[in-house]
């Protein structure tokens, strides 16, 4: 349903993203979706009102290389993903270490989808919520 989606992997992520900017694309945002076994991470770029997207499938427990070195604007959204999904983002130019949106007493990884568990209690991650 989403047009212009290109599947990429963690290995060629940085090259692919770096190739977009000189073509006049504007970085719009990233979206992280919990798909059970893995996270779908979408990178949205815009040129002349036309969205073009990358889809990265990231296994749970793997860390995500940051693109904030290439595109500074990705910094905020990558920190947000790190907070809300517990995805470790490596190489952030400014790392809030999981305290960007959430405070110490907030639920951990609140947007992670775990069958039967709606929200992980603060301080004590439920067993089912352990990332594989």
């Amino acid at each position: 349903m989403i047009n212009n989606v290109e599947n990429i992997t963690v290995d060629n992520l940085l090259d692919k993203v770096a190739s977009k900017m000189p073509l006049g694309f504007r970085f719009v945002t990233m979206t992280c979706v919990d798909c059970g076994e893995h996270f779908d991470i979408l990178y949205h770029f815009d040129k002349n009102y036309e969205l073009s997207n990358f889809r990265l499938s990231l296994k749970k427990g793997e860390s995500l290389p940051s693109i904030s070195g290439l595109i500074f604007a990705a910094l905020v959204v990558e920190n947000e993903i790190q907070d809300l999904f517990g995805v470790k983002v490596t190489g952030l130019v400014l790392d809030y270490e999981g305290r960007f949106l959430l405070t110490e007493t907030a639920p951990e990884r609140p947007l992670c989808r775990v069958p039967g568990v709606m929200m992980v209690e603060a301080g004590k991650p439920a067993e089912a919520a352990e990332v594989k």
């Binding site: 719009v28 945002t29 979206t31 992280c32 979706v33 919990d34 604007a73 905020v76 989808r113």
Partner: peptide, 12 residues
């Protein structure tokens, strides 16, 4: 809905 994500203008 399985996922709803909002990117608001001030965020950008």
């Amino acid at each position: 809905l399985e996922r709803l994500r909002v990117r608001t203008p001030t965020f950008a």
